[in-house]
Structure formats: structure tokens, C-alpha cells
Amino acid sequence: MDERQESDERRRSPTTTARSGEVWIDSEDDILRARQQARSIAEDIGLSITDVTRTVTAVSELARNVFLYADEGVMKWREIEDGPRVGIELVFEDDGPGIDDVDGVLRADHSTSNGMGRGIQGTKKLMDDFELTSSAEKGTTILIRKWR
């Protein structure tokens, strides 16, 4: 398994971290591993079955995008706390070609032939938080969160 758990030194306001780790994505099987890791964490923190399903579905879309468009990348996951709230945060990073038209991808009418836009738009709908940064130089980073 290309995944490892590690203590996380980051203490970014307003969230703190309980557990964290990462899953490398460079094969189709890694999409499955990313889903399984996300499901395990989402269930551990007590998300409802519907929110677990939303989260795992979002992870499947984003992990597949990493593999299809960048060949390889990483999913970093954290259990997060913000006061009384707990949640799961997942960050997908790749050094791929980037997205030329970020606003366009997030518009409902935009989709590449393989449906990247649709997957990203859907992911945004399913999650509580969604942040996308992309450039040709730095690749693409997408952060998603679901709070319990």
C-alpha cells in the first residue's frame, strides 16, 4: 500500500489536526485505495452514511482526475477540528498540466471530452468546502472538507 500515516506538525488556524496521512496516486488501483482511506476516516469521525457517500464519491472523482490528467499525484488527508466541530479535509496535489480556465471548469456548461468539468462541479456540490488553485507551472491543488 502506497499510504502512510504520520503525525502532522501543521496547526493551521482555525483547524487543528487529530490524524493525518497521504495516499499516492499513480495507478487506477490507487483510486480505489484513496476511496477506501477516505471512507475509513469519514466513518471514524462519525459522518452520516450520506455524508460518507458524498465524500467518497468526491474523492473518487478527484483521484481519477489526478491519474487521468497528471499521471500521478497525492491525496493528503487530515482529521480536523474547529472548536466543537470535527471534519475531514482532503487535499489533492499534482504537477500536471494545470487547468487553463479555472472559472470555466467550475461553470456548469464547461466540460472536457472526458468530463473533468462535470466531476469537479459535482465534487463542489457534494462537499462543505472546496478550494481550487491551478497553474501550468505548479499543477493543480484541490482542497475539500466535510464537517460532521
Binding site: 476511496r35 471512507r39 457517500t53 467518497v56 464519491t57 473518487s60 472523482e61 481519477r64 468530463g115 462535470r118 466531476g119 459535482g122
Partner: peptide, 10 residues
């Protein structure tokens, strides 16, 4: 099936 993403649905 517990996860139906866009690929699987298609």
C-alpha cells in the same frame, strides 16, 4: 455499490 461516481454511472 456504495460509491457511484461519474465514471461508474456512465
Amino acid at each position: 455499490v456504495t460509491t457511484l461516481d461519474s465514471f461508474f454511472a456512465r
